[in-house]
């Protein structure tokens, strides 16, 4: 067959695409289970890092996770738990598209050195793409024990800095309720310029990353709002126990 004819060219391209496609599909499906394990372990590492359990290697993640995380709850919007849903498997990306009534809100209850922590997963939009993270509350349901953020495609050196430790450290001991008891979350704000005031519901913004910072603010506020009912219920329980 003439190597320069149109027919040959189409035939060659067609066969090539089918062969390459099949090969890649095979490689992708056969490696998928191992990749999923990596993603799962990384999620556990991120959750653990919010309560100060760092230096966990990927292999140890599962063991440490079982050690510190006592409960994994999937909450309904009214604050009751949905036993039918596995909290760890909730995909926030899919969940965010549903109505709040249909959504299930995962929360992890951790115990470390005798104190309880409540870890809430976050997800929102940065400048370019999704941002997500975890926020750990102390058992007063107000003080932040730690946070972890990650992003898909924020600008390196600017928005991408939200995952750096120095930024995450700002959030430590910040409060999510204002003085009047409203759930306001923590805002990433300009001109705050202090790292000491822990009851102003604000942390310092990153210069040049205003939109990513606003994304973090909105993400925290939007996500935490859905846990208000649960928090109130838990506080009520604590009060009646005392």
């Amino acid at each position: 067959m003439d190597r320069n004819s149109n027919g040959y060219t189409f035939l060659f391209a067609g066969i090539m695409v089918v062969v390459v496609g099949a090969l890649l599909a095979f490689a992708a499906t056969s490696l998928k289970p191992m990749q999923d394990v990596n993603v799962k372990n990384e999620k556990m590492q991120n959750i653990l890092s919010t309560i100060g359990v760092t230096d966990v290697s990927r292999e140890e993640a599962q063991g440490k996770f079982d050690e510190f995380i006592k409960e994994q709850l999937a909450l309904k919007v009214d604050g009751s738990t949905d036993e039918a849903v596995n909290a760890f498997n909730i995909d926030l990306k899919a969940e965010l598209k549903k109505d709040p009534e249909a959504q299930r809100f995962p929360i992890y209850v951790a115990e470390k050195d005798g104190s309880k922590f409540y870890i809430i997963p976050l997800r929102g939009a940065g400048l370019w793409d999704a941002i997500w993270g975890y926020i750990a509350l102390k058992d007063d349901f107000n003080t932040i024990a730690g946070v972890s953020f990650d992003h898909k495609a924020e600008t390196p050196g600017l928005g991408a800095e939200i995952k750096q430790q120095w930024f995450l450290d700002y959030f430590k001991d910040e409060k999510i309720f204002d003085k009047d008891g409203n759930l306001v979350g923590v805002a990433v704000a300009k001109g705050n310029n202090d790292k000491v005031t822990k009851d102003d519901n604000k942390v310092d913004a990153i210069s040049g990353a205003t939109i990513t910072g606003d994304g973090v603010t909105n993400m925290i506020k939007e996500r935490l709002a859905h846990y208000k009912q649960y928090i109130d219920n838990q506080k009520g329980k604590l009060a009646s126990n005392n």
Binding site: R3, N4, Y8, T9, F12, A13, M16, V17, V20, L23, L24, A27, A28, L31, Q35
Partner: peptide, 23 residues
């Protein structure tokens, strides 16, 4: 085919790279 050789090269390099990335 001579006329699509660059595309063929790209397809082969790209699929090898995807395999490396997945591994």
């Amino acid at each position: 085919p001579n006329r699509i050789r660059i595309i063929v090269q790209l397809v082969i390099v790209a699929s090898l790279v995807i395999i490396v990335d997945q591994v």
